[in-house]
């Protein structure tokens, strides 16, 4: 009896090792994406890393339940997105929290490839967008995150994502021009 159970348990162990290897490969492949999704919401490096880490921990626990491994990316992104939103909500509740503008500077200009002043202006313009347009432009701009994945995450058709993206860029251009005009008149 014990031999039989040990043999079956050994089989479980092999399966677990294989799962662990598979998860590690997916971790390496998707860690940057998870971080960027979290950063797009939180705009703070450390917070984004913490949230992405939390998301990977959750994904690891439930990894066995994921039948279709091909959907890991979208599954992970959804976890990160929700956790980041939760984190942002809880952060906003704190009265002593530092301003969003200050947080945006959590990433250095050299890191982004965009000067700080320009980056601040862009973030300000993005913040002025309605929620639906902001979500689309932020998620679609993340490298390695295509429109189909954005559509799946937001649970809207791809066509809707495209139209929102177009509208978001149009609004952004207008805001940026308005912001530039504001800054020159000051």
């Amino acid at each position: 009896m014990h031999e039989w159970t040990d043999r079956v348990a050994g089989g479980f162990m092999d399966v677990d090792d294989e799962l662990a290897r598979e998860f590690d490969a997916l971790l390496v492949e998707n860690s940057a994406l998870a971080f960027r999704v979290a950063f797009s919401v939180l705009r703070h490096r450390q917070d984004a890393e913490d949230v992405a880490q939390e998301a990977f921990a959750k994904a690891h626990v439930r990894f066995k339940q994921l039948r279709d491994r091909q959907r890991f990316r979208s599954w992970l992104v959804r976890i990160v997105w929700r956790l980041a939103l939760d984190h942002r909500r809880s952060e906003r509740r704190r009265s002593a929290r530092e301003s969003e503008h200050g947080r945006a500077h959590g990433a250095s200009s050299t890191d982004r490839g965009v000067p700080d002043e320009r980056a601040a202006m862009l973030w300000e313009a993005i913040d002025r967008l309605p929620e639906k347009l902001r979500q689309v432009i932020v998620l679609a701009s993340i490298k390695g995150h295509d429109l189909a994945e954005v559509a799946a995450l937001l649970q809207v058709p791809v066509g809707t994502v495209k139209s929102r993206l177009f509208l978001a860029r149009q609004r952004l251009r207008e805001y940026l021009q308005w912001l530039k005009a504001e800054s020159t008149t000051r």
């Binding site: 860690s31 940057a32 971080f35 960027r36 950063f39 797009s40 490096r45 984004a48 890393e49 992405a52 990433a107 890191d111 982004r112 490839g113 965009v114 320009r118 980056a119 862009l122 973030w123 993005i126 432009i137 932020v138 701009s141 993340i142 490298k143 860029r169 952004l172």
Partner: peptide, 12 residues
Amino acid sequence: IREIDALMNVQP
């Protein structure tokens, strides 16, 4: 698009 992409694509 380039600027927003650069803004979002930060490295951990």
